Computed example of a mutant assay.
Amino acid sequence: MKSTLRLCGVAAALALCLGSVRADVKPYGGDYEAAPAGTDLFLLYYQHHEGDEVYSKGKKVADDLGVRLDIGLLRYVHFADWNGYRIDPQIIVPFAHQRTSAADTTYGGLGDVIFGGTLWTLNDPERKEYLGWSVFITAPTGSHRDDGFAVSGDRWAADFQVGYVRRLAPKWTLDLIGEVEFYADRRYDDARRDPLLQGHAHLRYHWSDATQLALSYRHSWGARERADGTTLTGRRDNNNMTVGWDSWLARDWQLQLQYTRDLEVREGLKTQGVQARLLKVF
């Protein structure tokens, strides 16, 4: 009987945590600085996230889940001019391997494809000031969509972002990014998710012309999920800190490293993780 209850608890906890862990590319300092038209970028990401504690309504509801998620992402970005504006159409293809020791499950495969881009209404490289507006669409193309695979939400989603960048001093830059994501009903059970609001603030220190350090704070609200009148996951009010380093190894190669950690989690899995990104300019 106790074993059955534990398995039920693990299943409920996994339903909570998989709503908060996703394969995505969170906006980072420098992402809203437009490159010259004609520039092509190819990016390869590796992310490792892990977590044991799950929270619901601010209270811990599960521990020792042993969730480990290794994610790779391929991203292609092309910068061009359109009607007097700079734009960057792009596509992101995630793939991942997910392990959960408490439920003894392992999944692997492709995640949901993301496509979209940014349009800059302010693009001033001399003053280092930028204002960009982005739309990203997520298509439910991933593997194991109805098996609790974290990199597939089994629903369409539309993510709208606005990012402002300003050089505060010769060595300091501030990036402020707001976003709201809307979701279609999940396909296998018609679960409805409220919009997710997120705010990002990045303070960057330019160590040299090639290298910078960044401190990032992120906060998320909303995304309550319901099905058949039952609340599956509550409203998020979570925050996170990230520290990062990136440097140009050569004129056309950049390496970025990040460490990220959730500070407070009202709803979902509390995680920490690392990311490495390799960027190639064509």
Rank of each mutant, 00 (worst) to 15 (best):
V151Y: 10
W120A: 11
A150T: 12
P140R: 11
L119S: 05
G132D: 05
V113H: 05
R193V: 09
E179I: 00
S152D: 00
D190N: 15
K128G: 09
T173L: 06
V165N: 08
L168H: 10
Q161H: 13
L122T: 09
T118I: 14
Q198V: 01
Y130N: 04
F160N: 03
L110R: 12
L122G: 00
S134L: 11
L110Q: 14
E126N: 11
N123F: 02
G163K: 06
R167A: 12
D124W: 08
T118E: 11
E129V: 10
L131N: 06
G199I: 05
G142R: 06
L174W: 06
S143V: 02
T121L: 14
D154W: 00
D146L: 00
K128W: 12
Q198L: 03
G117H: 02
F115R: 09
W172E: 03
F149A: 00
G109M: 04
R187S: 14
K128A: 13
P170N: 09
A201R: 08
D147M: 01
H144V: 05
Y183A: 04
L176Q: 11
R187E: 12
A157N: 09
F136Q: 05
R166C: 03
V113Y: 04
D112V: 13
F160E: 01
Y188F: 15
S134R: 11
W156T: 10
I114R: 12
D190L: 14
D190S: 15
W133Q: 08
L131E: 07
E181V: 05
R186P: 07
G153P: 01
W172V: 07
D190A: 15
L176D: 00
R166S: 12
V151E: 09
Y188G: 07
A150Y: 13
D146Q: 06
G109E: 08
D154I: 06
G199N: 05
R167H: 08
R166I: 11
S143A: 12
G142M: 04
K171M: 08
G163W: 01
D159P: 02
D147H: 00
L176M: 11
Y164M: 07
A169I: 01
S143D: 15
R166D: 05
G111D: 09
F136D: 09
A191F: 05
V180I: 15
V113A: 01
I177K: 01
G199D: 08
R127Q: 14
E126I: 12
G117I: 05
K171E: 13
I114M: 10
F136G: 01
R167S: 14
G153I: 03
V151T: 15
V180N: 14
L196T: 03
G163Y: 08
P125R: 02
D194S: 13
D194P: 07
G132L: 06
S152F: 02
D124S: 10
F182I: 15
Q198C: 07
P170K: 01
K128T: 13
Y188T: 15
F149V: 03
F149T: 03
V151F: 10
D124V: 04
G142Q: 06
A191V: 06
R155P: 04
L176I: 15
K171D: 13
P170Y: 03
Q198W: 04
R155K: 12
L174Q: 13
V180G: 13
L197H: 09
G153K: 09
L131C: 10
G148C: 08
P125F: 08
D147E: 12
G132S: 05
A201Y: 00
F149S: 07
I177E: 03
S152C: 02
E129R: 14
T173A: 10
G117N: 04
D154V: 10
A158Q: 02
H144T: 02
